[in-house]
Design a protein around this nucleic acid. Structure first.
Lengths: 337, 337
DNA sequence: GTGAAAGCGCTAACAA
DNA sequence: TTGTTAGCGCTTTCAC
């Protein structure tokens, strides 16, 4: 692989002239430019990004801190990852997938090794030690989600209060008043992961505003767990006529439990999920959903991060997306007595 | 951020002694080691990976070449990505997610910039230009999937012939003889992506071996497309009693089309998918499936790549995984006449 | 407009 | 065992 020195030699100019011709940070005569371009073509020269990074202290790499499956956190949606990677590529950055096994310590190391320009953090807990650490070190990062104290921090998140309000009010419109919420596993709640806490809060708030009881339960992320959770739920609340899900992976089990009780969806029972359209369309019947904007969140998160990296954005940006409702085949008017 | 020079100074040794103490490539006295360790702790020193990479020409980064959504290829499963990232982490490597928008050219660039030690290639076409290019440049890579000519190349892939044989023979056991195959969209077939070509071949081969007609169709990856494809299929082949799917994302539509014809699954019609258990359990009823070993393929692919990178494996390794069948609720004895 | 040379923070060959 | 030093391939300052 040719180096810049070889290009310089072949073009009959100084090494630095090649560098400046490439970066445009100093005027270079047309004559010289031409000869340099030719040499680059002849030798199929590619600048060595590594050497450049060492000199500039910029790698053009961002890291996506990805919750490890071991930690019991939910895996991100593929749409989100794709969106992150493609946005980064479009902006001239590469994406490093980082599954931290030892969390805090590893993050610290990583950020100090100079390989990464900035970090995208997911699954933010209300009081997240990672956030505290990165903030203390003034390391550039953007959050997908947000915690309790977001002073001086940038994030994009779904507006879960709005999501729950939209969900509940749509069900109310259909005449449902006995509505329950089934969230992700309790592990997440105990870790005080922002989205689950806010989902519960949002649900409670809307239900109370309408002077209704807020019934909540949770389920691990599997068909069987969803089945069992629903059975329990129906046993305890026989008059329930609608259920809001946050985890589409349980929907199969939920539907099975309902069908065992001869509760037809949507004739006797309505189901609404906060999820991606893609997953909402996998079940039978397809699920009415409050659409989780994975693609948008990925894109915006990366854009925010890169803006701060490139100094185009000094002030922290904080964005809450309001999700839209898509009516499919799992919701209908209240008919049970 | 402290540098190695500062550590050396504080510990009262030469710069190289610090380097050797860290790498262990040269004996260092206990005395010196102790002082160096202390200095490292005091200053919270972290070696700069970038500088190390420039000197050694090893970055400890592998890239996963990820089919861009624009290209019409299917997105990988999240289980696969997670498995890749976690295996890499465990082996001391980081994973770069690379969504190539301009394909060939970009790959070439990337590999020449020195940032990546090796590449994991997905969605391999029978005659894949990327493979030809990487091979010609002697760039280290491993394939998830394989093409027609695999001389000197390493790969891990599912044994699609075996997958189809398992599928068909199970359906035959249940008494089905009018069996169809619904594959991913034709785009993939036209690009001669290995897995889809081999799936069709495998199906044809087994069916012919049993002197049965091999009926195949395809569908884009959505509920609606699956619905339409199934309607057409049933109209053309009214006596069909079983269907094999390669794309779980169409299953909702398939089930809807069947139910419109009053074909109950599994009572009147059997459905079998080649997919991950997780997705197979999302539908109602849950799908009997030939399990696609995403986790295993990710792990093995990374391990193969790292072995060759570290020179532990000179000869190319080629592995075809035979998938297992998991019976769920979508298959049953043949009853239609 | 151009060139020479001093870094960036490491590794590893060479010398002791 | 240890120290000195020449790279790795680039950017950027300083000098002309």
């Amino acid at each position: 692989m040719p180096t810049m020195a070889e290009i310089a030699k072949r073009a009959g100019v100084a090494l630095s002239t090649v560098s400046y011709a490439l970066s445009g940070k100093r005027p270079v005569s047309e004559e010289a430019k031409k000869r340099i371009q030719q040499a680059i073509k002849d030798l199929e020269y590619q600048p060595n990004t590594l050497a450049r990074a060492l000199a500039t202290k910029k790698t053009k790499i961002i890291a996506l801190l990805y919750p490890s499956s071991v930690s019991g956190l939910s895996a991100p949606q593929i749409e989100f990852l794709t969106s992150v990677a493609e946005t980064a590529t479009r902006k001239g950055y590469a994406t490093l997938l980082w599954t931290s096994l030892h969390e805090d310590q590893e993050i610290l190391h990583m950020t100090q090794q100079g390989f990464i320009d900035g970090v995208l953090l997911m699954e933010i807990a209300l009081h997240d030690p990672r956030v505290a650490m990165l903030k203390a070190r003034h390391y550039p990062f953007t959050m997908i989600g947000h915690g309790t104290d977001n002073d001086g921090l940038s994030f994009v998140d779904l507006d879960f209060h709005s999501a729950l309000q939209t969900s509940v009010e749509y069900l109310l419109t259909l005449g449902h008043t006995n509505i329950a919420l089934m969230t992700h596993s309790l592990t997440l709640l105990h870790k005080e992961i922002g989205h689950i806490v806010r989902t519960k809060e949002g649900f409670a708030k809307v239900m109370h505003a309408h002077q209704l009881q807020d019934i909540t339960c949770s389920s691990e992320s599997s068909e069987e767990a969803g089945y069992l959770a629903t059975k329990t739920l129906l046993a305890e609340h026989p008059t329930l006529s609608a259920l809001i899900l946050t985890d589409p992976w349980v929907s199969g089990g939920v539907l099975r439990a309902l069908s065992e009780r001869n509760l037809k969806v949507p004739d006797h029972f309505s189901l609404l999920a906060i999820t991606s359209p893609r997953l909402a369309e996998m079940t039978t019947p397809t699920l009415t959903s409050v659409d989780f904007p994975y693609v948008e969140m990925g894109r915006i998160g990366v854009e925010m991060l890169i803006h701060t990296l490139e100094g185009q954005q000094k002030k922290p940006q904080q964005l809450l997306l309001k999700p839209a409702l898509t009516v499919r085949r799992s919701t209908g008017p209240h008919t049970r007595n």
